[in-house]
Design a protein around this nucleic acid. Structure first.
Length: 1110
RNA sequence: GCCCAGAUGGCGGAAUUGGUAGACGCAGCAGACUCAAAAUCUGCCGUUCGCAAGGAUGUGCAGGUUCGAUUCCUGUUCUGGGCACCA
């Protein structure tokens, strides 16, 4: 019998389908195992050979775990909302639902051909209303929650509202800087709109404003990859940043937990590192730099005033005063202490010759609480003098009576708050964020992000025009371009700030290398320690202060933390990393800065101005966003007439009158909405009352193995981790990390092929009387190898020869030829790899390509062949380098295809696709087949005869058992660690060796079949039944490794002299060091190399090697 | 620019913990079977010197640690992935 793979594969695929062999139950006595693939987007191009790589890997693992006795969940579904379908709809007028459904059908049929063990009854599609009902529902949970920073978890927003009613937001710092402190009194007095606006700043899903790529000409918002070099990819229209109302997820609140969670999951170190870097936690300080301009109101002081620090006696008095607090002072202190108003207050603090009641040094605000004796005239006069003196050195003084403090505390606090915010404006200041406060004395200039709000206020009239021009330039550039730019650009604002530590004037610049979104959008530049600051200083000729002595050579910056500080006042002589703490403490003490933890990660933009996505279950009333009720879900995506954007760049939903009449949100959710929780829906995909029952999510729990590419490292993987954490916090699931183990699959790259068209233009002077004599100028392609060798002149001559040939008789009438050089002598064109054999172009196929576009093409060949150029690129339809798995399955069968994809190399490594080697794997399966069937007679030759165990007489049995158990050990280990390429070669070795010993024993071959089942399920099921089994091999028991079959008594040791291998000697494994030394030194080869040199030592590593050192 | 990964024969790759570099497969070469082809089987196959025995050299590049380095360290080049609206 022949190995007829297509017959076998169809037969068993039908059988498995009919018997529901892959149906998985949520109720089982077996331990559970959840194997998940990353959610595919069903693109119109269909599957190419790159897609199944991860699916085959997971399929093998799922089948392996099943053989090992697990109840395995291995589902598949579609991330079906997305931009490409919408783009297709715009171009072809076909509803995305229809094109998506077609793509899904195509995808599924392609997947089925490969023989995956998906439980199709659990299939999900994100664009299905039954699915997105729950995406909307989860969104509402996020909308109706806030992050309790004390408890470090999400909680219902009603709980927060209760707290606000009781105590204001004193214990719940707002994640947004837009909301300052308010009391319960304040809260209760706020109107609905204010209250809702405040709540919005706390919600986990919230509305804000964000910049998008706006293309005026197309009237639409563009995705980043639709923008190329600042213009739209389609049409090349200019693109600028535009602020639009957007939804966000407050993922930044989860930053710390997302970091901590990484310690509990089994992801690669690289993956964890990428996520860690993306979250970008850094510790440092915010430092306030006072501006020299505009001048503080009415006082004329252009420098930061200094004041005298208290002497010993004053400190003693202050201490005593603190103990003898009045009732009013105590009340106020309780409200001011511990940064409750966001700033640090001190009580009974000595300033100049006075001891003031309360002072905020940072805002230079003094609060005096007056007891009764302040009412006498002398005291009043003294107080006034004191106020004037304090104001002269830059303080603001406000006074309250005991009465006011005790009876109208709220009003007093409000006045203080107002005074605090006014204080900042008067002086004008820039807050910078730095991770290196130790370098404070090396600050030579300051750089603000061009978006920084202070810029318009501080720019001097002389610099105004230059600054505006620069800002216009920056507006046209993406963050990526800004960071990648090597050229130094920037602009001086004309303003100066003062270094609070040495009063040095610091020029303030703006530059695109400072991004508005990170830190405070302003940096203090230390050119001797930071490369970009250094280059900036050089470019603008800013003198550089060296604070690190010989560590700075004047040629390049040195970011060391180990240098001893110089030119640094009170820090001189201190090692930089120790100075960081000292400076931070000093900043806090002086009230000019604070310790600050920063995250690079930003809140996740969660809306798109598009049609093909989940509608938000949100209604707007009077500018307030209200959630729909649960029973109004799903909010169905309506039909639209056109997929073009709304009037102000909103999504297409804004064009539907009935939609806008209901005041429904016109944005839709982004692609990652549905994919952030799909792994939960698989557990219970038909549930109509919950996103998944608690019972189901408790049973399946975390995904045990998740296989997917690193391209999702920071997007999808962080979002879904956040969603899981939020659902966990709110009590809907009982695990807060969704994926226990992550295996990264590499990309299969395309190996593109190119043909080279000659561009040189040949002009003919022809007989104009007969226009039909106009000569034909076919496209001429030149072979790559030839192109590399010959000169442009030779190319021209070849070209003319061709024109002569094709024009034949006509050519004789041509009176003159003129060859005009074009800038590029030739063009490199992608050609479909499917009609290139290796590098040789199949010219006939090429001529038929693209409806005969090149039917008349001519070719300059070499040795009768057209050799193509080659390059490794992304596999993509537009590059004509895709290979369809269907073609390969038809030609070699699914089993061969599956094994070949695995045999290509390690799963996690990227590699270019090359179909060439597939024959080898196919031969392996045929060879396996021949172990069962006689080549010539076609008869089954497997016999049942118990192979003899160790010590028995029949060596045949021993050898075969050894071969089998060596394979079991290797293949089981390799499968466990996803090293499928080495497992496949172990199968090959095993089958080669069994063929060599002509093994035909059922007891050897049957376990081999079981081991091979995960890799090649069809052929093994067929042979399994050939051996007489009646149940499916899918449910067989994995063979058990027995080490006793592999025991050896001696080893052939490699022997090196001075590390160079010279010979091999067989030595018993139990030999001692002395015995080994004797044997080795007696060896002739060793003697020859040692000659009479003295032997220093002999290194003997048991079971490894021997090295003689002379 | 920043973050992550990778680089080994003509090609895909192996070497799991610092211990015989090139397993397994492809391609190639030689041979067997055949009228022939296909299929199958056998042998050879990093480079280089040599008739051979054997030697030299060799894991992107330059250094270092070690008895011994593809493996560890420092620097560097190139390639791939990501960089917040592709999914």
């Amino acid at each position: 019998m022949e190995y007829n793979f297509s017959e076998i594969e169809q037969k068993w695929q039908k059988n498995w389908n009919d018997t529901k062999a892959y149906k998985v139950s949520n109720i089982s006595s077996k331990p559970k195992y959840y194997v998940l693939d990353m959610f595919p987007y069903p693109s119109g191009a269909g599957l190419h050979v790159g897609h199944p790589l991860g699916y085959i890997a997971s399929d093998i693992y799922a089948r392996y775990k099943r053989l090992k006795g697990f109840n395995v969940l291995h589902p598949m579904g579609y991330d079906a909302f997305g931009l490409p379908a919408e783009q297709y709809a715009i171009e072809h007028g076909i509803h995305p639902a229809i094109s998506t459904e077609n793509n899904i059908k195509n995808f599924r049929s392609q997947l089925n051909k490969i023989g995956f063990c998906f439980d199709w009854d659990r299939e999900v599609k994100t664009c299905d209303a039954k699915y997105y009902k729950w995406t909307q529902w989860i969104f509402l949970q996020l909308f109706n929650s806030y992050f309790n920073r004390t408890a470090q978890k999400a909680e219902p927003i009603e709980k927060l509202v209760e707290t606000f009613k009781q105590e204001g937001n004193i214990n719940h710092e707002c994640p947004s800087t837009d909301v300052s402190l308010f009391t319960s009194h304040d809260w209760n007095a706020y109107d609905e709109k204010t209250q809702q606006e405040i709540l919005m700043q706390y919600r986990l899903a919230f509305c804000g404003y964000g910049e998008v790529n706006w293309c005026e000409a197309l009237g639409t918002v563009l995705a980043n990859d639709e923008v190329v070099n600042g213009v739209s990819e389609r049409g090349g229209h200019p693109v600028v940043k535009k602020k639009l109302r957007q939804w966000y997820l407050r993922i930044t609140e989860y930053a710390d937990r997302l970091l901590k969670g990484l310690q509990t999951v089994d992801f690669s170190e690289a993956m964890k590192e990428m996520q860690t870097n993306w979250i970008g936690k850094s510790t440092g300080a915010e430092i306030k730099f006072t501006l020299t301009q505009p001048l503080p109101k009415g006082r004329g002081a252009a420098v930061v005033p200094k004041y005298k620090v208290a002497d010993f006696i004053q400190f003693e008095n202050a201490k005593r005063n603190r103990k003898e607090q009045t009732e009013a002072e105590n009340i106020l202190w309780q409200a001011l202490r511990n940064n409750q108003l966001d700033v640090k207050f001190r009580r009974q603090h000595p300033i100049e010759n006075f001891i003031v009641d309360f002072v905020c040094l940072q805002k230079r605000l003094i609060i005096e609480v007056d007891g009764g004796y302040h009412n006498i005239p002398e005291q009043k006069e003294l107080d006034e003098v004191r106020t004037i003196e304090l104001e002269n050195i830059g303080f603001t003084v406000i006074r309250f009576t005991n009465e006011e403090v005790i009876h109208s505390t709220d009003a007093v606090l409000n006045k203080i708050k107002k005074a605090l915010s006014a204080g900042g404006e008067g002086l004008g200041e820039v807050v910078v964020y730095t991770t290196r406060p130790d370098t404070i004395f090396g600050v030579d200039f300051m750089v603000l992000a061009p978006e920084h709000e202070l810029i318009t206020n501080i720019t001097t009239p002389q610099q105004k025009q230059a600054v505006e021009e620069y800002i216009t330039y920056v507006k046209s550039r993406s963050d990526r371009e800004r960071q990648a730019e090597k050229k130094i650009t920037g602009c001086f604002t004309g303003a100066y700030a003062i270094n609070p530590f040495n009063n040095k004037n610091i020029p303030i610049y703006i530059s695109e290398y400072v991004l508005a979104g990170y830190g405070t959008g302003a940096i203090m530049a230390v050119p001797c320690g930071d490369e970009r600051d250094f280059k900036f200083a050089k470019h603008f000729n800013i003198p550089i202060t060296n604070i690190i002595g010989k560590h700075f050579n004047g040629e390049e910056a040195n970011a060391t933390k180990d240098a001893v500080l110089e030119n640094s006042d009170f820090l001189n002589g201190i090692v930089m990393k120790d100075a960081i703490e000292i400076v931070v403490n000093k900043l806090v003490e002086l009230g000019i800065g604070k310790r600050k933890t920063n995250f690079k990660m930003r809140d996740a933009a969660f809306s798109r101005q598009r049609y093909w996505g989940e509608p938000f279950p949100i209604v707007w009333k009077n500018g307030i966003a209200y959630a729909l009720n649960e029973n109004e879900l799903p909010l169905l995506l309506p039909e639209v007439d056109s997929y073009s954007p709304g009037p102000e760049g909103e999504g297409p939903l804004a064009n539907i009158d009935s939609w806008t009449a209901q005041q429904l949100e016109t944005n839709t959710m982004p692609g990652y909405a549905g994919s952030s929780w799909y792994f939960l829906r698989y557990m219970d995909n038909e549930n109509e009352t919950e996103f998944a029952s608690k019972q189901a999510t408790d049973y399946w729990n975390q995904v045990d193995v998740y296989i997917g590419g690193t391209e999702h490292a920071v997007g999808h993987l962080l979002y879904s981790r956040m969603w899981a954490k939020a659902l966990y916090d709110l009590g809907f699931i009982s695990f807060d990390e969704p994926f226990k183990k992550l295996v990264n699959q590499g990309m299969i790259q395309g190996s593109s092929r190119f043909v080279y068209r000659i561009n040189t233009i040949v002009e003919f002077l022809v007989d104009m009387v007969n226009p039909e004599n106009d000569p034909i100028r076919p496209d001429v392609f030149i072979s790559k190898t030839l192109l590399d060798r010959i000169t442009p002149d030779e190319i021209k001559n070849q070209l003319i020869d061709f024109y002569k040939k094709v024009n034949g008789e006509k050519y004789k009438r041509i009176t003159k030829i003129h060859v005009r050089d074009s800038p590029n002598i030739y063009s490199e064109l992608h050609v479909d790899v499917n009609f290139v054999d290796g590098y040789e172009l199949n010219i006939e196929e090429f001529k038929k390509w693209r409806n005969g576009e090149y039917a008349n093409a001519e070719f300059i060949l070499e040795d009768g062949k057209y050799i193509c150029g080659a390059e490794v690129e992304k596999m993509s339809k537009s590059k004509f380098n895709t290979v369809n798995p269907n073609d390969l399955v038809d030609k070699y069968g699914a089993d061969t295809f599956r094994m070949y994809e695995m045999f290509l190399g390690p799963v996690e490594q990227s590699k270019p696709w090359d179909t060439k080697g597939i024959e080898g794997v196919h031969r392996f399966l045929k060879k396996l087949w021949r172990l069962f069937f006689d080549e010539t007679t076609g008869k089954l030759k497997v016999a049942s005869s118990t192979p003899l165990s160790t010590g028995g007489e029949g060596q045949g049995g021993e050898v075969e058992l050894k071969i089998l158990h060596k394979a079991i050990k290797k293949i089981e280990e390799d499968t466990e660690r996803f090293s499928y390429n080495t497992a496949v070669s172990a199968f090959m070795v095993c089958v080669n060796e069994l063929s060599d010993v002509k093994c035909n024993k059922k007891e050897i071959l049957e376990p081999l079949l079981i081991m091979l089942t995960p890799y090649a399920p069809h052929i093994t099921e067929e042979l399994w039944h050939v051996l007489g089994n009646t149940t499916s091999i899918l449910n067989a028991n994995y063979p058990t490794f027995n080490p006793q079959y592999l025991v050896e008594s001696s080893k052939e040791y490699p022997v090196s002299i001075n590390g160079k291998l010279r010979t091999n000697i067989v030595i018993a494994l139990d030999a001692s060091q002395q015995q080994v030394e004797q044997i080795v030194l007696a060896n002739d080869v060793v003697k020859k190399w040692v000659e009479d040199k003295p032997i220093k030592k002999i290194i003997f590593v048991k079971n490894k090697m021997i090295n003689v050192v002379v």
